[in-house]
Structure formats: C-alpha cells, structure tokens
Amino acid sequence: MKTRTKLLIALIFISIIQLTFPLFFIAAKERVLETGKEYLFRIQPVDPYDFFQGRYVSLNVPSLTYTTDNPDEFKRFDIVYAEFEQDSLGAKITHLSHTKTEHSLKLKLYAKPNNKMRIRLPFRRFFMEEYKAKTVEHKLSRSASDKNYVHVKILNGDFVMTDISSNGKSLITGKPVKSTVLLQ
C-alpha cells in the first residue's frame, strides 16, 4: 500500500472519530432531557464571561443541607448520589447514598460529613446569548423576594439544565413555565 493511501485511511478514520465523538455526548444528554425528572433549585445570580464558551449567567445556588444519623458512612471528597423532592421553596435532598438510582444526582462532598451536612450543588453556569445574559441578570437581581429557579433534569446521576425562571416565567423564552410544582 502506498503511504498516501495509508495516510488517507488514517485521516478518514480520525475524521469519523472527530465527527462522531460529540454524538455520544449528545446522545447521553438527550436521554437525560427525554426521560429525566425535573427539579427546581433556588438561585441568586451574577454574570461573567468565558473565553471559549461565551456569556453565561453564574448561578449562585445555595448549598442544601442534609440531616443524617450516621455521618460515618461518608468521607470527605466522596462521590455520592442524592435523591430530591420538590417543594415550593426549591428542591430538597431526601436521601444520600453511594449507590446510583434512577432519579439521583452525582455529587461530591466538599464539606466534612457530620449530622447536618452542607452539600454543594454542581449547577454553576448557564450559558446564553450575550445581550440576554445581561437582562436576565438584571431581572434576577432586582428583588430578593422573587422566586428564582434553575430548572434541572436529572437521570442516573447525570443532569442537564434546561431553563431559568423567575416568578413562574421563563427568562429564556419569556413564556410561563409548564412546571406545576412552582405555582402551588
């Protein structure tokens, strides 16, 4: 075989990988979007910039607390799975364990485990259009009493953020959100 043919075959192979690699990524995330369960977490935002990925709203999600009787089960920097329950003040952790369940989220324990653990959530950035990000930030920071949420779909430890809403209205599309939990 000539070197050029060899090179060409290698190139085609690499190109296929380059083009299909993101598809796996996309497939996994699409599955979460399709079958994941939606939870709403309260937020307090600011708005910075990422060189590669553009403008985003930094979501200041307050840590959740989890009360347990036996904190010795967990170690610091452990990877754990949390199950949630929705109420009108945002999602709450109902169960924390080392085993994955259908609607659990993968988390890292940054604080030292004790009876009342503070748990940091991995929702930090919400990317959006340059000008929209500024108005969203403005709308969100206007009043502290507003009910601001980030909508997250959760499946098998993985998650996808879908929306940001303020007082039942999506800040991305401007339409009222479908979720019924919020409007109680």
Binding site: I17, Q18, F21, P22, F25, I26, K29, D50, F52, Q53, G54, Y56, P122, R124, R125, F126, F127, V160, M161, T162
Partner: peptide
C-alpha cells in the same frame, strides 16, 4: 469550537468536563 458549542448547548462548563482533554485527543 465544536466542542465548546456542544458543551454550551447542554449547559456544561468546560473546566468541569475535560473540555481540553477531549479537544487535544481529537
């Protein structure tokens, strides 16, 4: 740019998701 955009579509910050590893390996 492809990787950055796809991570962005699914609201994933690059720093927490091996963005540079994927980029370099590809």
């Amino acid at each position: 740019s492809m990787l950055a955009l796809i991570l962005q579509i699914y609201q994933l910050p690059g720093i927490e998701n091996y963005f540079f590893s994927y980029w370099c390996v590809l």
